[in-house]
C-alpha cells in the first residue's frame, strides 16, 4: 500500500511542486544584499581598521616607547626606535607599522598602557605601491589627529568592558 502511495506521490511530482513553491515564495521576498558603495553594514565600536597614534588634549603624543606593542605583535609588523627627548622624557624616534604584514588582531591596541596606538574604523584605504602601506610615525599621528573625535567616542563606549 505504501509503495502505491509513494508511486502516485512521485508520479504527480508533488515533491517537485513543493520545492518550486519554496523558491517561488523567495522570488517575492525582499533581497538581503547590502549594496556596498551605496549601503554599508553597521560597525562595532571595537572595529579594527586602519591604525592611528593619539595625542593628549594638550597636543603631547601619548606614546612612551615601551615597545609592548612591538613585543606582542604576532606578525612582527611594528618597528620602534626610542631616544631621550630634550626635556628628558622617553619618546619614539621611529614608529612604523607595515600594513602589508599586519593582521589587524588588535593586540597592539590592547597591550598599550597609554592608549597611544589604536585601530580606527577606517577601512577604505589602499596603496598603489607596496611602500604605500608602510605607515610611519608621522602618518599614524596624522591619522590620529584626523579621526580623534571618533576614536575618543569609541574608547569611551568600550571603557566599561575593559
Amino acid at each position: 500500500m505504501k509503495n502505491i502511495i509513494d508511486f502516485f506521490k512521485s508520479f504527480l511530482l508533488l515533491e517537485l511542486l513543493k520545492g518550486m513553491s519554496v523558491t517561488g515564495k523567495y522570488f517575492f521576498a525582499r533581497h538581503i544584499t547590502v549594496e556596498y558603495p551605496e549601503e554599508k553594514t553597521p560597525q562595532s565600536f571595537r572595529f579594527r581598521g586602519l591604525h592611528a597614534q593619539r595625542r593628549y588634549p594638550n597636543g603631547e603624543e601619548r606614546c612612551i616607547g615601551c615597545k609592548l606593542c612591538e613585543a606582542v605583535c604576532p606578525a612582527l609588523a611594528i618597528k620602534i626606535e626610542v631616544a631621550e627627548r630634550a626635556d628628558g622624557s622617553r619618546r619614539t624616534t621611529q614608529y612604523d607599522i607595515d600594513l602589508v604584514k599586519c593582521i589587524f588582531c588588535g593586540f597592539c591596541e590592547e597591550s598599550c598602557p597609554v592608549d597611544a596606538i589604536v585601530e580606527t574604523r577606517v577601512y577604505e584605504y589602499h596603496g598603489e605601491n607596496r611602500g604605500d602601506l608602510y605607515y610611519t610615525k608621522a602618518m599614524l599621528l596624522a591619522n590620529g589627529d584626523k579621526h580623534e573625535a571618533q576614536i575618543a567616542k569609541d574608547r569611551a563606549a568600550d571603557a566599561k568592558y575593559r
Partner: peptide, 12 residues
C-alpha cells in the same frame, strides 16, 4: 530571476 529566488538583486 535566479537572483531574486536566492534573495539577492542580480546584476544591477
Amino acid at each position: 530571476v535566479l537572483g531574486f529566488m536566492q534573495v539577492r538583486p542580480g546584476p544591477n
